[in-house]
Amino acid sequence: MYAFGYHRPTTIDEAVTLLGQSEDASAIAGGQTLLQSLKQRLAQPGELVDLGAIKELSGIAVDGRTVVIGALTKHNEVALSSEVRKAVPALADLAGAIGDHQVRNVGTIGGSVANSDPAADYPAAVLGLGATVETNQRRIAADDFFIDLFETALEPGELIKAIHFPVPKRAAYVKFAQPASRYALAGVMVAETGDGVRLAVTGAGACAFRVPAMEQALAGDFSADAIKGVQVDADELNDDIHGTPAYRAHLVNVLARRAVEAAR
């Protein structure tokens, strides 16, 4: 780990100011990616701005139509929230399957979404449920948020405040966890929402993506059989020692069918 300065602001404005003061400042939320990169000496921020003391960033609010989760809310808080479980059980399930207890007790939804790791679980929920990302500057629709590998629509100085999840009619998340890391080798969130069927995939590509062909098939017939023959193109998918693009493409179909069957 390299030496760095450490700040713990209590307001968003203060945090943004601190981040703007130094070219190599970095915000830290739960730190489940950043701390590892610091320990491995891959990151060398001059200043760390810890968002953990900004109270307004934390918490869960549920009304009949929307679940609003503050950016600093920890995975286990979402997983164990009876309100979330009642409103969007798929979201609570997803949060409860992230990493292990240690990660879930520290990692945050805002950190995960802003990082946009190709194998993270939350991006599938944001995209699959058609959520809105609220930042200190604007509101960004999920469809516009995830750009590419570790790249999002967030601009410098822009911090996620909360994620707004519309409550779907039914939804499910099914994940195939790589056993060593428990990251998603592939994960599928399917949801029947007021705006139609949405199906988002994580783990398989550069970032979370939707599968329009499956969505269209499911719009007419929300059943596993409806998408039996709908394959995603393996060409663009990730390749690593845990699985080939062909395997991931195959898994997406299998998991999508299982998610449709599990949706509630």
Binding site: L35, Q36, S37, Q40, G99, D117, F150, S181, R182, Y183
Partner: peptide, 12 residues
């Protein structure tokens, strides 16, 4: 590089 970091214990 992120992949490296991810490879190092982080479970998110």
């Amino acid at each position: 590089v992120w992949q490296v970091i991810k490879s190092l214990f982080g479970r998110k």
